Simulated assay, not measured.
Amino acid sequence: MHKLSIPSLALAAVAALSAGLAHADQLADIKQRGSLVCGTLGIAEPFSFPNPQTREIQGYDVDFCAALAKSLGVKLEVKMVAVPARIPELQQGRVDVLAANLGWTPERAQEIAFSDGYYVSLTKVATRRVDGYKKPADLSGKRVAAAKGSTSEAGARKVIPNVTTVTYQDPPAVFLALQQGKADGIAVSELVLVKWQKEVQATAPIDILEPELFSEPWGIGVRKSEPAMLKQVNEVLESMEKSGEATRIFDRWLGTGTTYDMRRGFKIEPIKG
């Protein structure tokens, strides 16, 4: 059997250690590359969606990605990801972080690390006005559509008795299912529903039912093996909260004068599991 000499063994150990450190230091890799790859949905206005003129992806989530990239002194590269592919894309290293309407759940927290919550979402049910539903429980035994892999699907099953959930690739497909009569109701973020409600008010009005199914904090997703990246993200978020930048981003996309006309009722803080 071939034996390695002591110097050879030492060199092999140093090489292995160096390779491990290089792989583990994501922040150094990003700085060397010169770009931060941020995964976003790209079709979820106002969080990430195409600018009508430039077609570049913009929105609430993108602004937070941009702030993180700026803190690292690199350019931002936005990569669109589908809802069910979000976590695999992160785990497989195709994106550095996720800012993709990613609600915290105990199951997801087993797979990836979550930053402090930078947004709090209310998930509600909407129905066609002509159907006369008043509250989510009225959809007992009915069909409710949600985005595949979303917490909305699980929330509908948990809250609405005997509901049948049907899933689609993304929120626009979910809404189309309601319009075409393929679903009796849809479970989506309140913000998305508010926008849709205004758009179809004159032609095919919808009702947003109360109470909400649930509220959920959204975090920026980071691989569990990257504690330095998680620390960097949380430090940036904390700085944005203190400086007022986080509030300005909210007001830009969701506040008074926007389609949503909302007030920020939360602060960036650790997610309590």
Rank of each mutant, 00 (worst) to 15 (best):
D251E: 14
N234L: 03
A16N: 01
T164W: 02
K272R: 13
S150W: 01
D251T: 06
M80K: 14
V81F: 10
S115K: 12
D61I: 08
R129Y: 07
P52L: 03
G273N: 14
L139P: 01
L36M: 03
E216G: 00
I186V: 15
A12Q: 10
E235F: 02
L11M: 14
G42T: 06
D61E: 10
G181C: 10
D61Y: 08
K198W: 00
L102Y: 07
A85I: 00
E238D: 15
G273E: 13
Q179Y: 12
P227H: 13
Q180N: 13
T247K: 09
G257A: 01
P217K: 03
V78K: 13
A100W: 13
M1R: 07
T165P: 05
P171Q: 02
V62T: 02
L193Q: 15
L209I: 05
I57H: 03
P84A: 05
A109G: 02
W253K: 01
G42M: 09
L36P: 00
P270C: 02
I186M: 10
T123N: 14
K182D: 13
R143D: 05
R108W: 08
Y119M: 08
Y60E: 04
A85Y: 02
W104A: 08
D25G: 07
P46N: 02
T164G: 01
A156Y: 06
A146N: 11
N162V: 00
A66Y: 01
G39F: 09
R157D: 04
